[in-house]
Design a protein around this nucleic acid. Structure first.
Lengths: 298, 298
DNA sequence: AGGGATTCATAACTATGAGTTATCAAACAG
DNA sequence: CTGTTTGATAACTCATAGTTATGAATCCCT
C-alpha cells in the first residue's frame, strides 16, 4: 500500500491540481507556500510519479497527474459515502434504501421483493417513488435513488442491470368489447381501432418493441393518445377511447371495466430489470441485490 | 471531506479489525500498544463512529466497523490500482489493455475496434487472448483482463455489459454438399445429418439459443461432435463429419472448403457483447469504451 | 481466595517532521 | 534596469505521533 504517503498529501495535491499555483493553493489550505512545496515534492518522491511540470514559473499537471486528479476525486467521494453510511449504521439505523420504479413493477415484483427483504432486514426505511425510465436513470447517476425498476434494453455506462421478470404483452380492451379471448383471432382485427400507448419518452426501446408487434401484425396502429401512466391508459379504455397493448402483469389490480387478452403467441416479451449504480456504497444495496437475484417471480 | 482523519488511522484500523487485539496489531504495525489505542480512539472521535466494542478484555467490531472494514479494503485496493496506473503513465507508456475474446469476435469486431483505437492511442500495448466465455468472466473478476468479448445474456454482478454487434446464424456445410442457398428449403432437411456444435460449456445461453433453433425446426439434432473452437468445427465439416450452425460473421476468413447459408428467416440472433469490471481503473478503459460505443460494425 | 498473567486505558515524556519565517534565483512586465 | 511575482531552499519551532511507565479490570490457575 501507499505507505509514506498520507491523506494530507492527497488533499494538497487536489488543491494544487485545481489552482495550478503554489501560493494560491497554499492560502486556500491555510498553510505556507514552502510547506506546500515540500509536501508535494515529498509526495512525488514517495509515489515515484511526477505529478506537476514546473517550468517558466508556470505549473502544469503531467498526464499522470491529470489521471490521478480525476481518479482521486472519484475515490475520495466514495470514501466520503462509505463514512456517512457507516455513521448511519452507527446511529442504530439499519439504513435506508431509495427505490424508483415504473408503474408496472408495483403489481408483481416490488411487493414480493420488499416482503422478502423485510424478513431479513426489518428496520430498513424505504423511499419508494414511481418515475419513468429516464428519470430513474438520471436519479441513479446522481445517486438520488439506490435502485430502479425499468423496462429498457440499455443503460448508460456505470449502471448495472439485472433482469428480474420476463413478461408477455396483453391486448387491453373495454370489458364490453365484442372481442374476447374466445373469439380473438389476431391483432389485425384491430387495424381500424384507435390505440392508447405509452409515450415513446417512457422508454425508446420499449416503444420500438410495441411498434414491432404492430408491424408483425401487418399494420400501423391509429394512435389516439400517448401517456406515461398505466392507470390513465386504463381509464381511457374504460371510457371507450380505444385499446392498448401493455405488459401482462399490469392485469393484477385492474380487472374492473377492462379485459386483458394475453398475446402469448407473439415472440415479443418485455423484461422488468433492476438497475443500480456500480459506485453506490449503500451497505444495504448488496443485500438487496442478493435477495433480488434469488427471488423467483411467477 | 474526512479532515482530521489521516491515512494512518485507516491503516491502523484495518490492522486492528483483522487481529481484534491491540497488542498484536500494534506489534504488526511496529508501534506501541498505547500509541495504537490512542490513534484508534482519535479516529472514532473524528469520524463520530464507534468502530470497536471493548468489553471483557475482548475487542469486537461494531456493525459500522464491519461495514467500514469491508468497504475500506475495497477502496484502498482501488487507490493502489490508481497509483500503479498513474505510475505507468508517468513512465511514458500510454498504458496497456488486456483483451479476452471468443473466436468469432476476431473476424469482424476486434480488428475494426483496435484499428480505430490505435488511431487515437498509438502507443498502447495490447494483450489479446482467445478464451471461452466463462474464462473471460473469471479473468475479469480477477482483473486479469480489462475487457472481454462474449456471447452470453447475463454476467455476474460487478461486471458491465455493452452489446456490440447482432449477428444472424448460418448453417455451415461442406462446399460440395448438394444443398446450397439456392435449393435450401429449411433446417428440417437436415434432421438426419450429424451436427458439430459449440460445447454447452462455451456458453450455456448460447447453447440454449442454438437448441431453440433446432426445436423451432421441429427436430433434435444428431450431435456428432462438441468443440469449443470454430476452426476445429470447420475442419470437421471440410472432412464431411457433419454440418453446423454458427454466428454468420465467422464466414469471413473461412470460405475454402465449406459454405455458409445464412438463416436470416429465423428469429434467433446472437449478440457479441463487450464486458468489463466496473471497478477497473485502467485509464485506457474509459477511452476504449467510448470508442466501442460509437463504432458501427456492418 | 489470592497471586500471576493478560487485557486495554491513562498520564507524562520525547522526538519526528509538518509548518513556519526568511531568503534566493529566475522569469516576467513595465 | 527595476520592481514584482514565481517556486525552491535553508534554518528554525512546535504540534503531535509514538514512547515508556503505570494502572484498573478481568481471567486463569492452583
Amino acid at each position: 500500500m501507499s505507505y509514506q504517503t498520507e491523506f494530507r498529501h492527497f488533499r494538497y495535491f487536489l488543491a494544487l491540481a485545481e489552482d495550478l499555483h503554489f501560493r494560491k493553493a497554499s492560502e486556500r489550505l491555510f498553510i505556507s507556500q514552502p510547506g506546500l512545496s515540500r509536501q508535494i515534492k515529498q509526495m512525488e518522491e514517495a509515489l515515484g510519479i511526477n505529478l506537476f511540470e514546473r517550468h517558466n514559473r508556470k505549473v502544469k499537471l503531467t498526464k499522470a497527474g491529470e489521471y490521478m486528479q480525476r481518479e482521486l476525486i472519484n475515490n475520495f467521494q466514495r470514501l466520503d459515502d462509505i463514512i456517512s453510511h457507516a455513521r448511519l449504521l452507527n446511529d442504530g439505523m439499519d439504513g435506508n434504501l431509495k427505490l424508483g420504479y415504473v408503474g408496472s413493477a408495483m403489481q408483481l415484483v416490488i411487493p414480493d421483493l420488499l416482503l422478502k427483504f423485510k424478513e431479513e432486514h426489518p428496520n430498513v426505511l424505504f423511499d419508494i417513488n414511481e418515475m419513468d425510465n429516464n428519470k430513474q436513470i438520471k436519479a441513479l447517476l446522481k445517486q438520488e435513488i439506490d435502485v430502479g425498476f425499468v423496462r429498457m434494453e440499455r443503460v448508460p455506462r456505470g449502471l448495472n442491470i439485472l433482469p428480474l421478470f420476463e413478461d408477455t404483452f396483453s391486448l387491453v380492451l373495454p370489458a364490453e368489447h365484442k372481442v374476447d379471448s374466445g373469439n380473438f383471432k389476431g391483432l389485425s382485427q384491430f387495424k381500424d381501432e384507435p390505440f392508447i400507448l405509452f409515450d415513446s419518452s417512457y422508454s425508446q426501446s420499449y416503444y420500438e418493441k410495441v411498434m414491432q408487434i404492430f408491424d408483425d401484425a401487418g399494420f400501423a396502429p391509429i394512435i389516439s393518445h400517448n401517456t406515461v401512466n398505466a392507470s390513465s391508459i386504463f381509464r381511457l379504455i374504460e371510457n371507450n377511447f380505444g385499446a392498448s397493448i401493455v405488459p401482462t402483469s399490469l392485469k393484477l389490480g385492474y380487472d374492473m371495466k377492462i379485459k386483458f387478452i394475453e398475446l402469448d403467441k407473439i415472440p415479443q416479451r418485455t423484461t422488468l430489470k433492476l438497475i443500480w449504480n456500480s459506485v453506490n456504497t449503500n451497505p444495504l444495496l448488496e443485500n438487496f441485490l442478493n435477495i433480488a437475484e434469488n427471488v423467483d417471480f411467477k
